[in-house]
Design a protein around this nucleic acid. Structure first.
Lengths: 291, 291
DNA sequence: TGCATTACCTGACTTTAGTCAGATATTTTT
DNA sequence: AAAAATATCTGACTAAAGTCAGGTAATGCA
């Protein structure tokens, strides 16, 4: 990483917090404490929620939230209602007045964005919008975390099932594998890595030990919403690193002929095509990489 | 302006305040109230300042600032000294300890930036840094304001003198015009527009009435530090609009052969070359645009 | 010289944001 | 049915941030 990259990021951070952060806050508070404004904004964007979820999302203390809600309830902005299933818990909903407040915030956000772009000509505006899109996408990509996960966790299940669903859609003859067993993704036989974006599981990939010096990479899948962010590449990096750590000197993998992007990626990453090494009926190509 | 542009700006604002604004603040406070941290940061970046300037820059109440300074002085972070010229006013300087604190913030900023980039691969990192640079430059461009200015104000003088200095450098035979008189940039004969970025004058341009339906655009200059931001184009827009407002149906302008970028811009903006319309000894090309 | 102005300081507030230890009511578990 | 666990609320705090009305000393001006 170059020092001028760091400097660029710092300049960016400084300018952007100054121009957008600071201004945006006061702009959007509308004479109301920021805490209250944040709450209304959150409720307006997400509809009804139970308090626990709200507390979690905004990172608020339970006592503090309770008081904020009481105050906003008093202002007629929102309503609290007991949940039917659980008499202890409550749901919050914006009232009509609350929805109006929210849409005022919404309009202000629009105005703020519009004023930001207004001084620029068409060409500059387009460049700015495009660059913002790029920064946004890459900042998102940068906050993806990858970590080992138990293969039987709910998130792991969700990813693996989505993967199977996609195989069934894409393979010419469908896919009849059912659900994967967790055994060969559980140490010390195998490992499952899960990628998360803001807590949500968006990708997975597994490594299985074939023998003392050989690993096999399997079930690399990225959620359609997270594609184009380089997550697959980072997963492969981590899986290969993991293979190295457990003593592998080479990794193998197979793929179906319909998964052309996957094949291209393997070649780009230094895998070379080899002969059939397993009896996977869905595999058409087999690859190897020396570590 | 397209509605999807606005949406992109809003998504960008949201993500960036979340990822950079919020995190950055707590990251940089170092267990110190944010107000104090901001003060140290400001002093570290700008060196010694008098209180009035500091108050203005940070937007603080005089009483509040006074207390903040007292507290930091007590911690040995800064010193207040009476000004020699004015016994009422004071200057603030960081002590050695203060400078150390500042450089700790500096290191933290670096770390923060580094951590942001760390998860990305080379290609993605380069794209992100490039896009950040683009956003930064264009946000800066977007905050340039253009307004009429008295031709004899200090800022106007500075711009016009810089313009003359540049002409003297670039014209093959030098430039012997001395300083411009303010008469033909003063209404109702003429007008001077000044462009500012964060309060600093960075560009100027003048319009002079030649007759009832003819205006002349003169002295369009952009500070070298502000070039490439499209300021010249925006100045021309405003000058032409102004010409329209005062009843002009065409605008004229002349230029020297060494100012090739200017000539290219005039052609691109719809000016067409005409014969000599004045006796300016430094002019080699004459242009006209119908409004 | 004396009066208005200025630059900053002090004291006495308020609001916002947040923490924490129980209290209360309602499930869930045993 | 009693005990344990939950979900939220209440009361009693604290720190930070900010406001405002004078107060004091130095300066500028008539």
């Amino acid at each position: 990483m170059q020092s001028q990259d760091i400097q660029q990021v710092r300049r960016f951070n400084r300018l952007v917090t100054q121009r957008i952060g600071a201004l945006g806050d006061s702009y959007l508070a509308r004479g109301r404490p920021l805490g209250e404004a944040r709450l209304i904004f959150e409720l307006g964007s997400s509809g009804a929620t139970d308090l626990a979820a709200l507390r979690q999302r905004l990172g608020l203390d339970s006592g503090y939230l309770s008081r904020l809600l009481r105050s906003l309830e008093g202002q007629g902005v929102l309503e609290l209602r007991k949940k039917a299933e659980d008499g202890r818990a409550r749901d919050v909903v914006l009232t009509e007045k609350g929805r109006e407040e929210f849409s005022a915030y919404d309009t202000l956000s629009d105005t703020f964005a519009r004023d930001l772009l207004a001084p620029l000509g068409d060409a500059q505006r387009q460049r700015l919008v495009a660059a913002m899109g790029e920064v946004e996408q890459l900042l998102r990509a940068a906050s993806v975390t990858i970590a080992p996960e138990a293969a039987d966790s709910a998130d792991a299940r969700r990813c693996l099932d989505a993967y199977i669903g996609e195989l069934a859609d894409r393979f010419e003859g469908g896919f009849e594998g059912g659900s994967f067993g967790t055994a060969d993704m559980t140490p010390p036989v195998g490992w499952l890595l899960l990628a998360r974006l803001d807590g949500e599981a968006i990708a997975c990939g597994a490594l299985k030990r074939l023998d003392a010096t050989t690993g096999e990479i399997k079930r690399v899948w990225v959620s359609p919403t997270a594609r184009g962010m380089g997550v697959a590449g980072r997963l492969m990096d981590r899986l290969e690193a993991l293979a190295g750590e457990i003593g592998c000197r080479r990794v193998l993998l197979d793929t179906n002929r319909t998964l052309t992007e996957a094949k291209a990626m393997y070649l780009k990453r230094g895998y070379s095509e080899i002969g059939r090494y397993n009896d996977n009926p869905y595999a058409d190509h087999w690859f190897e990489k020396r570590l």
